[in-house]
Design a protein around this nucleic acid. Structure first.
Lengths: 227, 227
DNA sequence: AATGTAATGTGAAAAGCTTCACAATTGAAT
DNA sequence: ATTCAATTGTGAAGCTTTTCACATTACATT
């Protein structure tokens, strides 16, 4: 994991919402989905916190930035709160996503059900390899990356997942930006330069292993959930 | 991305090193590798910072937790600093890693070169599916998950990458813990319970897309690099 | 109707993290 | 040998995030 978008935005009424808060909303959403399936109608900040290894105060504070969703003495209505969070996160809709780079990680993500489950629909694939162009992945035909700009526009793509080699990532991201895409999730282990108005986020899987390595070697003590 | 290991550990001389600092060490390491290839002998905190969209003060502060690696007026010696960071992160060696769950993501990670490049060698694969057990992935034969405990021990495995479905992840992680593994990188979108002495880290790829979604919907302004 | 219990929402305090700013130090130039 | 320019290392300040603690409110019970 890793990124480029700010932490301190003024989203709502001028309040600054931290990145950590947004990330925790994702966790709450996931926990609420589960609670809903388990048949719970309400849930307290205490229970929600325990489920995601956070504190009740943190849960209440996070939610309070966006409104008053609970009932004193009772807790939060599971189904309603889930919907509210979906609206806040913008996942109460389907996002049309393109994926560029049909390598190991890229092809895996095409079949990754969790994306679709959260409303991120991969509807377009691109590669520069003639052997891959025209091939079918989960019902999607791989397009030639040279047609990126026109095809992204034609298909109303709003986000791009970038799974190309690090060496070409900057070139490709420039093309994606030129094509008018505003949100990019980059898996290449490289720091990409993008204009200020582009949302870029980096997924750096080695970094997580490096953290584990550091933890073992330095006898790190455990305390909190990292987001 | 995402986890379970603390942020505020006392690794060295009682100093607390934050998780952000550790994550930035990974970035510095990557930047230094590149600088080394480009032929630089020294680098200033200013240049290093610019490469990873951080501030020079941040770079200096981070490094100062671990020692004095620079020369005033000159900067940091690229090759040496890279080695120092490798030692700090514990990546100046090879880690023997097992991967459990040969699905989409799992098989992609077996071929993910970036892991090997950082010293994380996947040497063992497990699955519970009879059709997969015995099959060969990049030279590794998939083992039966029922032999997890004995085979992990026999092979001196120190870390496990977990790419099983969310529904079975808790069960599997319990087995992994029983087998004596202390570090786990979990890709299942579920909050796993582990004893306090186990290092667990979560990679949550949907969370990153959800952040992008939030950013677009709420007109988030950009400022910093997220780690 | 009154009392008791549970649990939110939130200012304020505490803790943690980042940036500032400057003394100290090095190498280069004169 | 002296001066100048560059750049580190670091305490202190500033800012952000988390936690605390409590008034408030809703429901259940008597």
């Amino acid at each position: 994991m890793s990124t480029d978008i700010d932490t301190s935005s003024k989203s709502l009424s001028g309040k600054r919402i931290s990145e950590s808060t947004i990330n925790r909303l994702s966790l709450y959403y996931r926990a609420l989905s589960l609670l809903e399936k388990e048949g719970y109608e309400t849930v307290s900040s205490k229970v929600l916190a325990r489920r995601e290894k956070l504190t009740p105060a943190q849960v209440r504070k996070d939610l309070s930035f966006f409104g008053s969703f609970g009932t004193r003495g009772l807790g939060y209505p599971v189904a309603d709160l889930k919907k509210e969070i979906a609206v806040i996160l913008g996942i109460d809709r389907v996002w049309r996503v393109a994926l560029v780079g049909i390598g190991n990680i890229g092809s895996a993500l095409v079949s990754y059900k969790e994306f679709a489950r959260q409303g991120f629909q991969i509807v377009k694939l691109f590669d520069n390899d003639q052997r891959k162009i025209g091939s079918n992945h989960k019902g999607i035909i791989v397009s030639d990356i040279n047609n990126l700009a026109t095809e992204l526009a034609e298909d109303n793509i709003e986000m791009v997942v970038l799974t190309v080699p690090a060496t070409v990532a900057q070139y490709i991201v420039d093309e994606i930006v030129k094509a008018g895409i505003k949100a990019i999730l980059n898996f290449a282990p490289v720091n990409l330069k993008v204009p200020d108005d582009i949302y870029l986020r980096n997924e750096n899987m080695s970094m997580e292993l490096e953290y584990l390595s550091f933890a073992i070697v330095n006898n790190h003590t455990q305390k909190k959930v990292k987001l």
